[in-house]
Amino acid sequence: MLLRERETPEGLLVSVCDPDCLGETYESGKVSLTVTEDFYGGDEAEDADEDAVVDSLHRATVANLVGEETVRVAIEAGVVDEETVLELEGTLHAQLLWLR
């Protein structure tokens, strides 16, 4: 998985995606999601295993997740409710917001 973290004035922003999703656009009705290199990839993104992703999600203020493996990891870690996951052209997308 590709993991990227950014510190913002509002807290830690985390983006994670399956590598094969990078550069793709997924649509469903009025909803469109483009998995851009600028947001999910770049020099600041790192290849991460499940443990690193879960650790990052627990520290995040907000997170954007794309891809079957990425979203599965978040569901299994208990940080994303499966019922809130969107499916766009067969690809899973979830967002996470911790209110602290």
Rank of each mutant, 00 (worst) to 15 (best):
T61A: 15
D38M: 08
D49M: 01
A52F: 09
T61V: 15
D47R: 05
A45N: 04
N64F: 13
K30I: 14
F39I: 13
H58G: 12
V66R: 00
A52P: 06
E50M: 07
T34C: 08
L33K: 03
D55Y: 10
V53Y: 02
H58S: 13
V35M: 00
T36V: 03
D38S: 10
A48T: 08
V35I: 02
D43I: 09
V53L: 03
E37T: 08
L65Q: 06
E46T: 07
G41K: 03
L33A: 03
D51Y: 11
D47S: 05
S32Y: 11
A63C: 10
D47Q: 03
S56H: 14
D55K: 14
G42S: 10
L57R: 02
A48C: 06
L33D: 04
D43G: 11
G42K: 09
V53T: 06
T36L: 03
E50K: 08
T61H: 15
D55E: 15
Y40D: 05
A48N: 03
A60E: 09
T34P: 05
T34A: 10
A60L: 09
V54I: 07
G41Q: 05
Y40G: 00
E37V: 11
V66C: 08
V62C: 12
D43M: 12
D43S: 14
G42P: 12
D49A: 01
G41I: 02
T34V: 08
L65N: 08
V53F: 01
V54L: 01
V54F: 04
G42H: 07
E44A: 10
V54A: 02
T61Y: 15
A60N: 11
D49F: 03
A63D: 09
S56A: 15
V31D: 08
L57H: 02
H58T: 10
A63V: 11
E37L: 03
L65G: 07
Y40I: 06
T61I: 15
T36W: 03
N64C: 13
D43F: 14
E46W: 04
E46Y: 05
V62L: 14
E37C: 01
